[in-house]
């Protein structure tokens, strides 16, 4: 079993490292710095850390003002608030100005678990996809989170980085992380599974099972939802002719719909989508919720079998 780590721990550590190298980096939080892990940065660089209390809209506006003066604000809260509560501020005051603000949210998706629906951001990717200029990254594990945070500190412009709450397994990756370039985690010729975030684990597990049945699945880590790696998607279409997408998100407006759009416009290809279908979340353990919302390895396998 690969190592289980919190992606948000990796975020907190990366932020401290970056803060030591670049004094323009500042961190902002809205009363969740312990959970989002910005607290460590605050302890190390108290002058560059600002807590705004339970007031996300103001926090986003302040981040824009800081960025207008050359600062690089990392803004953190839970995904549900960072995307929804302050959407207008993110759209009109951060993205429209193309400000260099990094919104790094945690507790995304259904696996927030027992806190229930009010805290489960399952439409945040769609919300961010509806804003031009916004780069959207969904890292799959702790090391990739660190790579993504470092990459977005180098990148000029607004970025939304989506992290979950629970520990996630560390996955084997060969190539270097690059914004907008998908990572092939496994080669295969019969079907492609394009996934992001914690769904990569289910995708890889499904590929293992299929291999035992004599079928080879290509597993693609689509960590960047925008700019989407169209080349990688079309390569999958050419190589395997069947594609399954997996995301811990509503099917409306998420990774699956983004991938499908690329395919329909270029190489129409049969697609099966794993994701949440027009439902709110609810309380439960992450494991139970993964089953209830059809995000399990079995669900990925069934989707593959429908196409094979």
């Amino acid at each position: 079993m690969s190592e289980m780590l919190y992606a948000r721990d990796a975020y907190g550590q990366a932020l401290i490292e970056l803060g030591g190298k670049n004094k323009e980096i500042v961190a902002l939080d809205a009363d969740l710095s312990g959970s989002t892990r910005t607290a460590g940065f605050g302890k190390k660089f108290p002058r560059r850390f600002f807590d705004f209390g339970v007031a996300e809209q103001n926090m986003m506006g302040v981040a824009a003002g800081l960025a207008s003066c050359g600062k690089i604000p990392f803004v953190s809260t839970f995904a549900i608030f960072g995307s929804g509560r302050a959407w207008d501020q993110v759209r009109n005051t951060i993205c429209y100005n193309k400000f260099n603000v990094k919104i790094v949210v945690t507790h995304a998706g259904i696996t927030v678990g027992p806190d229930g629906s009010s805290h489960q951001a399952i439409g945040d990717i769609a919300l961010m996809r509806a804003i031009a200029n916004m780069t959207i990254i969904v890292p799959c594990d702790a090391p990739e989170t660190k790579e993504a945070i470092c990459a977005c500190a180098e990148y000029q412009g607004p970025v939304y980085v989506r992290l979950g709450r629970p520990k996630v397994p560390t996955l084997a990756k060969k190539d270097k992380f690059k914004i907008g370039r998908a990572r092939i985690l496994r080669e295969g010729k019969d079907i492609s599974i394009i996934a992001c975030g914690m769904m990569l684990k289910q995708a890889l597990d499904a590929a293992e099972v299929l291999e035992k049945e004599g079928l080879s699945a290509r597993v693609v880590n689509m960590h960047t939802i925008r700019p989407l790696d169209k080349k990688a998607i079309l390569e999958c279409a050419r190589l395997t002719k069947r594609i399954v997408t997996c995301e811990e998100h509503l099917l409306s407006g998420g990774l699956g719909s983004a991938v499908a759009s690329v395919l329909v416009e270029n190489i129409p290809t049969p697609v099966a989508m794993i994701g949440i279908r027009d439902r709110f979340g609810q309380s439960g353990s992450p494991e139970d919720l993964i089953k209830e919302y059809h995000l399990s390895t079995d669900d990925v396998l069934q989707a593959c079998r429908r196409l094979l």
Binding site: Q57, N58, L66, G70
Partner: peptide
């Protein structure tokens, strides 16, 4: 939204 933006400008000036 402008008052929030103004606070950001103030904090940046303080740091610089």
């Amino acid at each position: 939204q402008g008052l929030s933006v103004a606070i950001g400008m103030v904090l940046a000036g303080r740091l610089d």
